[in-house]
């Protein structure tokens, strides 16, 4: 589904990603871990199409198609979803109105008709129940005045609504208490299928107890320096990142 080959990317002439290789197949969950400043969030933003990042070389293939030249919205229309580490507050746009616009613009791009209002409302009801989101919440301005946990739950709610092929969760666990973490993870697990894939970016192993990865990668200084299975995450939790640095000789 997603193939990243030797990806180099920079922001304002500062090289951040220095040769990323990653292969994600449908039905898989990948975790990307690594210390602060290793390039995790950059990788997420580059795949989602943030324009400030410049791809110098390498390619990002989604189902075999190079998406490097596509805009953020075109990537979204092809099924890429990024759950933001810091969801942006948008005063004046309600959660419902935002979702309605996002879904209908995506459908428009896919040559489909707008979703009928009753169908939309039904879907909103189902998915908000899944994330245990209060209905009153949906008429509030997007992310405005939301607590950290509410913001993250709202991100996964949007994921549930948009049903992406590839979901990248950028530090979705940060700022979550254990209950919220469970709700969010439960939501992600319920949305998992044989046809979609999830990339979980996290500092800590905690989230991976709930969203169990098939593969764990360690990102360091813009490169994936080690890959393994979920045991690698436990090892990182126990030993920290220093042994990796030693092992890879940096």
């Amino acid at each position: 589904m997603l193939k990243i080959n030797d990806l180099h990317a920079s922001v304002e002439d500062k090289a951040i990603l220095r040769g990323i290789n990653l292969h994600v197949k449908p039905g898989e969950v990948h975790a990307i871990m690594g210390p602060n400043g290793s390039g995790k969030s950059t990788l997420a933003s580059v795949v989602a199409g943030k324009e400030e990042y410049e791809v110098q070389s390498g390619e990002i293939l989604l189902d075999g198609e190079n998406i490097d030249e596509l805009s953020a919205e075109e990537r979204a229309h092809k099924g890429v979803f990024l759950s933001f580490q810091y969801p942006v507050e948008i005063p004046g746009v309600s959660v419902t109105n935002f979702m309605k616009t996002a879904i209908n613009e995506t459908r428009k791009a896919q040559g489909l008709k707008e979703m009928p209002a009753n169908e939309m409302l039904k879907m909103i009801r189902q998915k908000s129940e899944l994330l245990e989101i209060d209905r009153k919440f949906l008429s509030r301005s997007l992310n405005e005045g939301f607590s950290g946990g509410e913001k993250k739950r709202n991100e996964i709610f949007q994921m549930a609504m948009l049903e992406p092929k590839l979901a990248i969760l950028d530090e979705t666990d940060s700022g979550l208490d254990i209950d919220a973490l469970r709700i969010v993870a439960n939501g992600v697990n319920k949305l998992k299928s044989e046809d979609n894939a999830v990339i979980v970016i996290t500092h800590y192993q905690r989230l991976l107890d709930y969203i169990v990865p098939d593969f764990v990668h360690v990102l360091y200084e813009g490169r994936i320096v080690k890959s393994g299975t979920k045991e690698l995450a436990h090892e990182l939790e126990a030993k920290g990142y220093d042994w990796i640095k030693e092992e890879v000789g940096v």
């Binding site: 948008i90 004046g92 996002a102 995506t106």
Partner: peptide, 24 residues
């Protein structure tokens, strides 16, 4: 950053700008 957020949800740039201006 709000524009990128909206675009990453599939709302095209022009519509995202319009929605932000409407919200404003």
């Amino acid at each position: 950053s709000a524009l990128f957020y909206m675009r990453s949800r599939g709302i095209p740039e022009k519509e995202a700008r319009a929605l932000l201006m409407y919200a404003f």
